[in-house]
Amino acid sequence: MPPGVPLSPPPPSALANPESLTRRSHRFQPKSIWPVAILAMFVMLAIVGIKAYRSLSQNPAQSEQTVEQEARLPVRVTRAETGLAQKWVFDDGIVWPVKRRVLTFQAEGDIQAIAKINGRDLRAGDVVTKGQVLATIDSRRQRSAIDTANADVEVAVQQRNQAQATVVQAQASLDRAKSDLELAKTELVRYQELFDQGVISESDRDVYLNQVDQAEAALRSAEQDVRSAEDGVRSAEAQITAAQARVTETNVDLEDTQLVAPIDGVVAYINIREGEYWDAQRLNSGSDQDLIESAPIILVNPQDIEVEIEIQADEANEIDPGQLTYVVLEEDVSAAQAAGASNQDLLEIAQDNGSRGTVFSVSPTQTPGSRGTQVSIRGFSSAQNLR
């Protein structure tokens, strides 16, 4: 019989006619499962009946004693309820793109130019590309310093070349001095033999002895000239290195007069105009708001944002990185709470009107002034109320 096909009892006519069963007894007939199932059911009922009979036939005193013993186990029944494991935290926060750059001049001077976009000055909302010059201040002093440094490099190179030529000349003089010394020594040996044979006088021999002494002195002088010339080469090379360093430094000074976009992004804030004088005292970094209002230019990448909020330290202890977070405007929640909204209602408001993200970081220290803890929220899957 194929699997999955239910078994069924034989038709009533077959059960009612024993002869038909007898006639078919010589052929194989599959046995029905129903008698077995019925038997099992009866066995179970019999067991239940026996247990029921035994329980009814027990001594009532024993039954009461059993009930009293079981009643000694205290049981407390509490209704299970589902709720929201959440907590609302309200405080001032600031929305920042994760990639943001504060551009400021490192030099002082009059602002000479601001980048033009479609014939107009750069303004907030304009898209810029990495490496684009956005603003410059007067750089005449820096460019003059670059010219001077480049001239110093050329002078040092010329001095190095002259020192190298002097080395070549000194080396040639040294070679001649060595040759002259060898010749003087050879002559001295020959005239010493003549003096020993009595052919020449002592004074004649001393002439060649003096020539050897003079050749040795000339050799020492030539060696000193070579060393001096090599020192001159090293000094000239050091001057070249110093001049090149000044060129690099002056180029950096020139870069300090320019604001160049370090990333592809959008101008979020611009607080400078052509003709204004810029100095470092204009930049106020006391707070985020002060920085926004005083920095020359702030660039952002609006595709990836974060929320920075400062909360009380005891509340920060309950927050861990990676926790799910909804950022909701305070007025939305306050209005709902005033209307008697439940936690479930607030959650629905957060899901409908808020921005869903995760806790990115929790500062391990407290800010000195407010004694609060800085919490950063990133990874927003939706940021409908943060733009």
Rank of each mutant, 00 (worst) to 15 (best):
M1V: 12
P2Y: 02
V5N: 06
L7R: 12
L7P: 10
P9R: 01
P9Y: 03
A14P: 02
L15D: 00
A16M: 10
A16Q: 04
S20Y: 15
R23C: 01
S25N: 06
F28G: 02
Q29F: 09
I33P: 09
W34L: 13
A37H: 05
I38F: 14
V48Q: 05
I50S: 09
A52N: 12
Y53H: 12
R54T: 04
R54N: 08
S57P: 07
R72C: 02
V77G: 00
T78S: 11
T78A: 11
R79V: 06
R79H: 02
A80R: 15
A80G: 08
E81I: 11
Q86H: 13
Q86M: 15
W88C: 02
V89M: 05
F90Y: 15
D92P: 11
G93N: 05
R100Y: 15
F105T: 02
F105P: 04
D110Q: 15
K116W: 06
I117F: 08
G119Y: 09
D121A: 15
D121K: 13
D121N: 15
R123L: 05
G125R: 08
D126T: 01
T129N: 05
T129P: 01
K130L: 01
V133G: 00
L134G: 06
R141W: 08
R143T: 09
N150Y: 14
A156R: 06
Q159I: 02
A163Q: 11
A165L: 14
V168T: 14
Q171F: 03
Q171C: 02
S173Q: 13
R176E: 02
S179M: 05
S179K: 07
L181D: 08
E182F: 02
T186W: 02
E187I: 05
R190L: 06
E193A: 13
L194T: 00
F195M: 08
I200S: 06
S201Y: 00
E202T: 00
D206Y: 05
D206N: 12
D206F: 08
E216V: 09
A217D: 10
R220P: 13
A222Y: 01
Q224E: 14
Q224M: 12
Q224I: 14
Q224V: 12
E230C: 03
E230S: 03
R234M: 10
S235I: 10
S235W: 01
T241M: 12
T241G: 02
V247H: 00
E249D: 09
T250K: 10
D253H: 11
A261S: 05
G265I: 03
V266R: 06
I270E: 00
N271L: 01
E276N: 10
E276M: 09
Y277D: 03
A280S: 04
A280Q: 01
R282F: 02
G286R: 14
G286C: 01
I297N: 03
P302E: 08
V307N: 11
E308L: 10
E310V: 04
A313W: 09
N317V: 08
I319M: 07
P321K: 07
Q323T: 04
L324S: 13
S334G: 07
A339N: 13
A339D: 14
N343W: 01
A350Q: 08
Q351W: 05
T358H: 11
V362A: 05
Q366C: 00
T367K: 14
G369P: 03
R371G: 08
V375G: 00
I377C: 04
I377H: 00
R378S: 11
R378T: 09
S382F: 10
A383R: 15
Q384L: 06
L386C: 07
